[in-house]
């Protein structure tokens, strides 16, 4: 009976949907192994999230609250999670593959002397072993791995697991004592957080994403991407080139090294479809491309294409959608 510990993702006062996707992963693993899962959250004050966390079907909700740990720094979180893992004899530790998950879990794996699989997209079970599928080579190869240590650490790609729906039943909540800080904590100081403001849906959660590339030519022009996104309730994304050129904040980069998205509808505007960008959009249901170059690689992965100048096509598209709704 291998018990699983899910590290929740809490940001801006909310339990993020990526947590629910990770719970789906954990419940699948629990069904395979006959174990159960608990969910753990860390932060300055989690009273506002306790309710949500307690309806995720977990054996237990474990809360670690201490001033100044909201930021999810590996140096701070690892000793706290490690203590919980050792006491609760958890064998599998899973977290969303968010920036916090990516920062914390490898360091945790190291302190638990555990092997780790990043960005897991699927899991199976055979002769008492778990097998994880994870993408490599910008999503061009799937690799199946087995972790051979007693404890296994994984980060989960949100877009590949349906979010767990809250249930009526409530899990018991336990608040834990915080162990003394790690030595490394003394050598790192948190200075501040600059939020990338957006009222739109989060990219990985969005049902519709409208992304712009270098073809937009300026940050000012990027507004038509935002207008289209707002009209249809979508999130806004961008290519690395658009971010590097300063059109938009880096938080909106989609691709191999940015956000992975899987909306029902992805609209790619003025972007070429470099393989690093396509790596982040492959699981979208429908891809639309608007590009003036009919040879642009984006047309090889899009379901519907329009070969046109975006400065003409996008305003027309906005008008047409307004007209028909």
């Amino acid at each position: 009976m291998d018990n699983i510990l899910v590290i929740a993702q809490v940001f801006d006062g909310q339990v993020k949907k990526s947590t629910n996707a990770t719970i789906t992963f954990a419940s699948r693993v629990a069904a395979f192994t006959g174990g159960s899962y608990s969910v753990m959250a860390l932060g300055d004050d989690l009273s506002g999230q306790t309710e949500d966390l307690s309806h995720l079907g977990a054996q237990k909700v474990i809360l670690a609250e201490a001033p100044g740990i909201d930021q999810g720094l590996g140096e701070q979180w690892v000793p706290i999670i490690e203590q919980v893992v050792r006491k609760g004899s958890f064998k599998i530790i899973a977290s969303p593959s968010s920036s916090i998950g990516k920062d914390v879990l490898p360091r945790l794996a190291q302190s638990l002397k555990a092997g780790m699989a990043s960005d897991v997209t699927d899991v199976s079970y055979e002769s008492d072993n778990l097998f994880y599928v994870r993408p490599m080579y910008a999503g061009n190869v799937n690799c199946t791995v087995q972790i051979t240590t007693e404890t296994e650490v994984v980060t989960v790609r949100q877009t590949e697991f349906d979010p767990f729906e809250a249930i009526a039943e409530e899990s018991p909540v336990e608040r834990i004592d915080i162990p003394p800080p790690d030595m490394a904590v003394e050598r790192i100081e948190f200075n501040g957080f600059e939020k990338s403001i957006s009222e739109r849906p989060d990219l990985p959660d969005a049902k519709i994403v409208v992304s712009g590339g270098r073809g937009l030519k300026s940050g000012e022009n990027f507004k038509i991407i935002e207008e289209l996104a707002d009209l249809i309730g979508g999130a806004v994304g961008a290519t690395r080139a658009a971010v590097d050129a300063g059109f938009i904040h880096n938080d909106f980069q989609v691709g191999q090294t940015g956000k992975i998205v899987a909306p029902d509808l992805y609209i790619a505007v003025g972007l070429s479809g470099a393989l690093q960008h396509v790596a982040g959009i492959k699981s979208s249901k429908v891809i639309v491309a608007i590009n003036k170059d009919e040879e642009a690689p984006i047309f090889q992965v899009s379901d519907y294409g329009i070969v046109a100048d975006l400065f003409k096509a996008v305003p027309e598209l906005i008008e047409e959608i307004k007209k028909t709704t």
Binding site: S99, I188, E189, F190, N191, F193, E194, K195, S196
Partner: peptide, 11 residues
């Protein structure tokens, strides 16, 4: 570069 914005730390 982290989810939701930029965090600054001194090491």
């Amino acid at each position: 570069e982290v989810d939701g914005g930029s965090a600054t730390v001194t090491v």
